[in-house]
């Protein structure tokens, strides 16, 4: 019990002192996970919309793949990305292994199925006659997509939260493709694993609390947006 209290006290001290390393790791974590989530949204929402609105050969296969991807173990994704980016791998020449970019790619692959799946479900729940009305009002393709995003914003914000949550909380893939290099690819999750292994529980607790508070704040903002009544 004392171990835990000591850990929490030390964590508070590190926060209060504005520990440079923790701040740096936190900002890197935010940058990598936000980039992965943003790209996942840019690809995932239109893809979800296409899967929800169009019937084409192979659609069922893609939806099944998306559903599988939603529960894909991060270490498997990490292994796949590592094999592709490994120096002797197909994209080895790009020299991306053990870089933040490789971590963005891995986190993107983890959050993309969630964004596609949530978008597909929310857009599919829109009354098809309402979509007909959008066309009848003279909307072009982009405008219909814009109106659909607007109309399903509650569900899509759930997609954002799920995508960001998956990205920021995973550790296996980041470790495999980032290498947990100090000052380069160390993020909150990988740093927590490292410090726990070293027995530096106070640092591990401090890092974990930052992670939890960060996830909470991001979700608090998104929930606020989601639940806000639209008036204008």
């Amino acid at each position: 019990m004392e171990l835990i209290w000591d850990g929490i006290r030390e964590a508070a001290r590190l926060w209060w002192a504005g520990d440079a390393e923790i701040i740096e790791i936190t900002l890197r974590t935010l940058a990598i996970s936000s980039a992965a989530t943003a790209i996942a949204l840019l690809i995932g929402i239109p893809l979800g919309a296409v899967l929800a609105l169009r019937r084409f050969w192979g659609r069922g296969l893609i939806v099944a793949a998306v559903n599988t991807g939603m529960g894909m173990p991060p270490v498997v994704v990490g292994l796949i990305v590592a094999l592709i980016l490994w120096r002797t791998g197909p994209l080895g020449d790009l020299n991306l292994i053990y870089t933040p970019t490789a971590m963005v790619v891995a986190q993107l692959l983890l959050s993309l199925p969630l964004v596609v799946g949530f978008s597909l479900a929310s857009i599919q729940s829109v009354n098809p006659r309402l979509i007909g009305q959008m066309w009848a009002m003279g909307a072009n393709r982009l405008q219909v997509l814009w109106l659909l995003i607007r109309e399903t914003r509650l569900g899509l914000l759930a997609a954002v939260m799920a995508g960001f949550g998956a990205a920021i909380s995973e550790v296996g893939a980041s470790m495999q493709v980032g290498g947990n290099l100090a000052g380069e690819t160390r993020v909150l999750t990988t740093a927590t694993v490292l410090e726990t292994g070293r027995g530096n529980f106070e640092v591990a607790i401090a890092l974990s609390l930052v992670l939890v508070v960060l996830a909470f704040l991001v979700n608090l903002v998104l929930t606020g947006v989601q639940q806000r009544r639209f008036v204008s």
Partner: peptide, 11 residues
């Protein structure tokens, strides 16, 4: 323009 049996208003 068009109108249907359902009002089909947006949120």
């Amino acid at each position: 323009s068009a109108a249907f049996q359902e009002p089909l208003l947006l949120s």
